[in-house]
Amino acid sequence: MSSQTIGLNQELYTYLLANSVREPEILQKLRQETANHPHSVMQISPEQGQFMSLLVQLMSAKKTLEIGVFTGYSSLSVALSLPSDGQLIACDLSEEFTAIAKRYWQAAGVADKIDLRLAPAVETLDTLLAEGQAATFDFAFIDADKENYLNYYERVLQLIRPGGLIAIDNVLWSGRVADPQIQNPSTQAIRNLNQKLHDDERVTISLVPIGDGLTLALKRS
């Protein structure tokens, strides 16, 4: 939930964009449209989208999962990096927000790779588990309501194969996680998740200070 990596001044951030980000035109157009959206703060930054795209390519991922779509920037970043037979199951509740996403998926020629599930994500994840899809996904991105983060994480961990990767957004929460005076439910939920991940021997982790903080959790064998 940050349009740029936190902790960088504008001069350095501009330099980062100019010397690192290779944003395809279709992603740039989507980002520009979303910038005018009332909830534009929910979009990930372009450098984070590119980073996740690189991770997907490094893993040669084919089967991926996303919890929280919004206008589709992260899902489009991932889908563009998947092979022709790759798949992304995208979970969201909003027909309004995802209508924007679907326009850009279609324009980018990746709509056939994306299976949009409009339902509470916990229900979708439970359905996938009930269908026998545990340990079949290569990569997952979690970026939805914070108070359900632990619920999402536990289910996604079952769905990811050993050696698969989970990326979890907003783990620095604009610095609020480090302020003990802030005790609202979303902030506490992220703190709880961060502590859970730190202590969880089922995964190898790294919290990367990109965007609003992105934790990478590699599922151990």
Rank of each mutant, 00 (worst) to 15 (best):
S81R: 00
V171M: 05
C91F: 14
A35S: 15
P46T: 01
V208L: 15
S94A: 13
Q87A: 07
H198L: 14
Q158M: 11
G163C: 07
V56W: 00
M52N: 07
V156W: 09
E25M: 11
D126E: 13
Q48H: 04
H198M: 13
L207M: 15
Q133I: 02
L172I: 10
W173C: 08
S221A: 15
L128Y: 10
L150S: 10
G213K: 06
E47A: 11
A140Y: 04
Q87H: 09
I67A: 12
V177Q: 06
T5A: 12
Q28E: 14
A217G: 07
Y15C: 12
K113W: 03
T124K: 05
M42V: 10
A79E: 03
M52S: 08
S40P: 05
N170W: 01
V69S: 05
M52R: 04
V69G: 07
S221C: 09
L12R: 08
E201A: 15
D85K: 00
T124E: 09
K62T: 05
V110H: 07
L125H: 01
A90R: 05
K63E: 02
K219L: 01
A79Q: 04
Q133T: 10
L157V: 10
L128A: 11
A35W: 08
T136S: 12
T64E: 02
S221R: 09
S174H: 04
P209G: 09
F137A: 06
W105F: 15
I205P: 07
F70T: 02
L116N: 04
E201W: 11
S77R: 01
G213F: 06
E123G: 13
Y13T: 05
V78F: 02
A121N: 01
Q4I: 10
N9M: 09
F141H: 04
N19D: 10
L165M: 03
D169K: 02
Q43Y: 02
E154A: 11
R31D: 14
N170M: 01
Q10C: 08
T14C: 09
R103Y: 10
L82I: 00
R220Q: 14
W173K: 06
A189M: 13
L128H: 11
F137D: 06
N9G: 13
I100R: 07
L88V: 13
L197F: 09
L118T: 01
L54S: 10
C91P: 06
E131S: 04
P162V: 03
A79D: 03
D145P: 05
N151K: 13
I205F: 03
L214D: 13
V69H: 07
N151V: 07
S75R: 03
Q133V: 02
G68S: 08
V122T: 10
T71A: 06
S2R: 14
S74P: 08
N19E: 09
L118D: 01
E96K: 02
L157R: 11
T204A: 13
